[in-house]
Structure formats: C-alpha cells, structure tokens
Design a protein around this nucleic acid. Structure first.
Length: 259
DNA sequence: ATGCCTCGCACAGCGAGA
C-alpha cells in the first residue's frame, strides 16, 4: 500500500496538478492538506473520476484536510478533527481506517511569529495530536500519521538548507522539535529517515527568494509509522519533480510503501 | 529590517503561509 501526503496549497488552484500527480504516481492513499475551501467546494466528482473515494474536512479560505483512497479499498472515517482540539474552527485533522491501516491526515499549525499566541496554539495542537497518537499506538494496529507537521526536526543540512536562516522561525523551535521527538522516542518511525538515513530530503521550497532553483528547501512533511506499520515499510520518498511544474504547490508529495 | 511569491476573498489590497 502506497500512502502519500501532499500539502497542495489550495484545491481550487491545484486541482489539475493534483489529478496529474494521482495519474502519474498512483498512490493507494493520499492525504491532502491546505484545501483552502469550504466542504461544498471539494471537487468530489473530479476525484471520483480519477478513481478515488474521498473524505474531507474543509473550511473557508484556510486549512482543510482530506484523505483519498483508491476505489476498491475500504475506507471508514474514524475521526474528524482531533479529540480535545484546542480550536475546532480550524480543520486540521481527519482519520480513517483503510484496509486495516489507520491513516491520520494532519496539518499542524505553522506557529509564526515566535513568540506569540500562534506559537502557543501550535504547541497546544501538538499536545492534542500527541494524545491521539498515544491512543493509536496503544491499539497496536498499523497506523500512519501523515501530513504537514510544520517542524524541521533537526538543524542538519539534510533537513534544512540553512539552519541559521530558519533559526528564529516557528518551524525550528526547540519546543515543537521536542514534541516531534517525543513521538519518535515513544516508538513512532519517521518513514523517510528509516529509508534514507542520510542525504538531503526536502519537501518544501518557498515561492520567494528563488528557493526552488537554489534548492533552498527543508523537510517538514512527514509520515510517522506505528511499530506494526514500520514492520511493513519497504520504501519511501519525495516526488520532487512535482515541485518543479507550472503552478506547483510550494510543497512536494512525500510517500511510503507498506507491504 | 523587509520583501520576495502564491492563494483566497473579492474586486483592493490584505492575511496567511513558511
């Protein structure tokens, strides 16, 4: 089962790119973030025509998450929003069981500027996610938490083009890194680093500063696997070429294959 | 220190992203 996550930065602006990517890479499951559209504007018919069933949790203008599953896979929604979500007006989490695999699609708050209420919200949201992760972990079933975590997990050149340039950004703060690392220490596996222990693996390049051409990117889109899912991990990667296309999102899709 | 670029909303320029 190939599970991908893709922050599309606007389902309205990105639909042609999304459909093209589905056709080219054929993921079984695709977690989407930043729909930036209310529920009624989710292009269900286009997605269905591409061969995918979908569940989605949108809102006007901002945020919004969805899970697409290839037709024929059994998908049952298990969660819409996080339990004890610190601000339910933000649509940032949706979860389903798909052929026995629990898939949580998440869009963690960016948190800029630091310090401030937005950063406090980021940490509060992370706490609520960690609670959900604990519940899923205790269930001992294969589970995947996939999405835009808005966390650069280390200062390593392989995770960020310039740690110094990003040092004051919410993506690099020790508090949110610690929250991410607590999940790893608890037994969740970072799929990309399990398959590619070293080497630059970026998932985001800013639209400004000629970042894509300079490869000035960083890694903030992650798939975390429960032990039962990690046991089945055979491959993982980033669809970098997607970022280089016309009208591309500023994120590239990230994926993992479970046997 | 700020804008760079993009999206959505709405039709001008701003909030938000990261």
């Amino acid at each position: 089962m190939k599970i991908a996550t893709f922050n599309i930065n606007g389902i309205g602006a990105r639909l042609p790119r999304l459909l093209e990517w589905l056709e080219e890479t054929k993921p079984d499951v695709a977690c989407l973030q930043e729909l930036k559209a209310p529920d009624e504007r989710f292009p269900q018919m286009d997605i269905a025509a591409a061969g995918y069933r979908a569940i989605w949790h949108g809102q006007k203008s901002w945020n919004g998450v969805a899970i697409l599953a290839r037709e024929g896979l059994e998908m049952v929604e298990t969660q819409r929003g996080l339990p004890d979500d610190p601000d339910p007006s933000h649509s940032r989490y949706i979860e389903a069981t798909i052929d026995g695999v629990i898939v949580g699609a998440l869009y963690l708050p960016n948190g800029n500027p630091v310090p401030g209420p937005k950063f406090d919200y980021k940490l509060a949201w992370f706490d609520a996610l960690a609670d959900r992760a604990k519940t899923l972990f205790a269930g001992e079933k294969p589970a995947v938490l996939a999405g835009d975590w808005n966390v650069i997990s280390t200062d390593d050149k392989d995770d960020v083009f310039s740690a110094a340039r990003m040092a004051d950004d919410a993506l690099s703060q020790p508090e949110s890194r610690a929250a991410f690392r607590r999940l790893l220490h608890a037994g969740w596996t970072d799929a990309i680093r399990a398959i590619h222990p070293a080497g630059p693996v970026y998932t985001f390049w800013d639209y400004t500063m000629n970042a894509w051409a300079r490869d000035a990117g960083f890694r903030i889109d992650h798939l975390l696997l429960s032990p039962a899912a990690a046991d089945r991990l055979v491959d993982a990667g980033v669809d970098r070429e997607t970022r280089g296309k016309e009208k591309a999102s500023d994120h590239a899709p990230v994926w993992a294959v479970l046997r």
